[in-house]
Amino acid sequence: MGFSQGLSGLSAAAKALDVVGNNIANSQTVGFKAGSIAFADVFAGSMGLGVQATGVGQDFTNGDIIGGNSNLDMGINGRGFFRMENADGSVFYGRNGQFEEDENGFIINKTNNMFLTGYQATDGVINPGAQVGPIRIPKDDMPPAASTKGAVTGNLKSDDKLIPSAPGFDATNPDTYNYVSEVTATDSLGNAHAIKVYYVHTKEGQWQVHAQDSTSPGKFTKATLKFGPDGNLMTPVTLDIAGKKYNGSDPLALKLDLNITQFSSDTEVKLDTIDGQAPGKFSRFEISDTGEVVAIYSNTKRQTLAQVVLADFANPGGLEQQGSNLWAETVQSGQAFLGTSNTGSFGKINGGMLEASNVNLGDEMVNMILYQRNYQSNSQTIKTQSEVLQTLVNLR
């Protein structure tokens, strides 16, 4: 009986040393999660038969966030796993955020060439229920798009001089208006158009506005701004600005909202938002802390391509290890639920950073000493049992 007990102790201690050795060996592995062994005693009736190793668990606490070497490096601070697919479409999960581009522009994990997945953008927008799939960074040029809507914001000085209507507005005569602002729009070919908006203070609390596409002049658009005693517009005002064909483009047709106040502060009106763009060459990309993959073009435009998806489980300890710092879903882990960086229970993605191994070398060295002594002690019980048997054999 003593032999089997000692042997079980030797086996358990050896397995424990294997776990410690694996932890120490992976202390510099990005995203590695330390393992811990569990033991249970073995009984037959009322007799103890030794010990058994019941399994190796994983410590999913966060590792330190350290600097990365690439703009594709990502570290998760908190709960969640990167969701990855292989070429066959099988899904795996991991915490190693060392990513790179392959020859086709897909983002892949450096250690196993798995495709990183995310919510796919449509026209630069991540819509609710967006499809989840491998993230690809296209290097195509951005085509031109005509401006169709925009808005300006600012203030018109309430005590600015009044200009009588008798002389009439004349864009070439500054004495017939108080202020002029300019908005740059683009046509269907990407040509820039200067939209000039002239403001004339005609009465207290009332202004006239005249707007024209000065690049391809059409008729002036006219509107009246009426302000209440609180300095805000009494009714919203939108200018419909129509240009002419320019260098073969379609005529410009722009709706411009005037989000303007009338206070005693100085007059200043500037562009708030406008759609459309000139053609642009792909320049670079970046990954934000929300996991959005954004392409940046030479025309200064930015376009969201996808958003990195995170996965989590009701019981991460039930995941099945696959090697290469990967795990697979099991019945014990439960089905994966998906989300994005820093939402709900999910941790935050840190772009350009990595999550280090959570192995504590000090703890592992202490455990190694303890398991080594345990191994030596069990070997001593076997030696003692052998001596006892030898004594019995030698009885006369």
Rank of each mutant, 00 (worst) to 15 (best):
S158W: 03
S158A: 11
D159H: 04
D159T: 08
D160V: 06
K161N: 13
K161M: 12
L162R: 04
L162Q: 09
S165P: 00
A166G: 10
A166F: 14
A166K: 13
A166S: 15
P167H: 03
G168R: 11
G168T: 07
G168F: 13
F169T: 00
D170E: 06
D170I: 01
D170Q: 13
D170V: 04
A171H: 14
T172Y: 05
N173L: 15
N173C: 12
N173F: 15
P174H: 14
D175W: 03
N178R: 03
N178L: 01
N178P: 00
Y179W: 01
Y179I: 00
V180I: 06
E182H: 01
E182P: 05
V183Y: 11
V183N: 12
S188W: 13
S188C: 09
G190L: 03
N191P: 08
N191I: 01
K196E: 01
K196A: 03
Y198H: 00
Y198C: 07
Y199H: 09
V200G: 02
H201K: 14
H201C: 09
H201P: 10
T202E: 10
T202D: 08
K203H: 05
E204L: 04
Q208N: 14
Q208E: 11
V209M: 12
V209K: 03
H210I: 04
H210R: 14
Q212V: 07
Q212I: 14
D213N: 03
D213R: 00
D213V: 02
S214W: 04
S214E: 15
S216Q: 07
S216T: 12
P217Q: 10
K219T: 11
K219S: 15
F220K: 02
T221R: 11
T221G: 09
K222N: 11
K222E: 15
A223V: 03
A223R: 09
T224Y: 13
T224N: 15
L225V: 05
L225D: 00
G228P: 08
P229R: 09
P229E: 14
P229T: 10
N232I: 03
P236L: 10
P236S: 08
V237S: 14
V237K: 12
T238I: 06
D240W: 04
D240S: 12
I241G: 02
I241P: 01
I241T: 06
I241R: 06
I241E: 09
I241Y: 02
A242Q: 15
A242D: 12
K244Q: 15
K245A: 13
K245H: 13
K245W: 00
Y246L: 07
Y246F: 12
N247E: 06
N247D: 08
G248L: 10
G248F: 15
S249G: 14
S249Q: 12
S249H: 13
P251M: 04
L252I: 07
A253K: 14
L254Y: 02
L256F: 10
L256W: 08
D257G: 04
D257T: 13
L258Y: 10
Q262K: 03
F263P: 01
S264K: 01
S265N: 09
S265F: 11
T267S: 12
T267Q: 08
V269L: 06
K270C: 05
L271Y: 01
L271K: 10
D272M: 10
D272W: 10
T273C: 01
T273W: 11
I274L: 02
I274K: 06
D275L: 02
Q277S: 13
Q277K: 13
P279T: 05
P279R: 02
P279A: 01
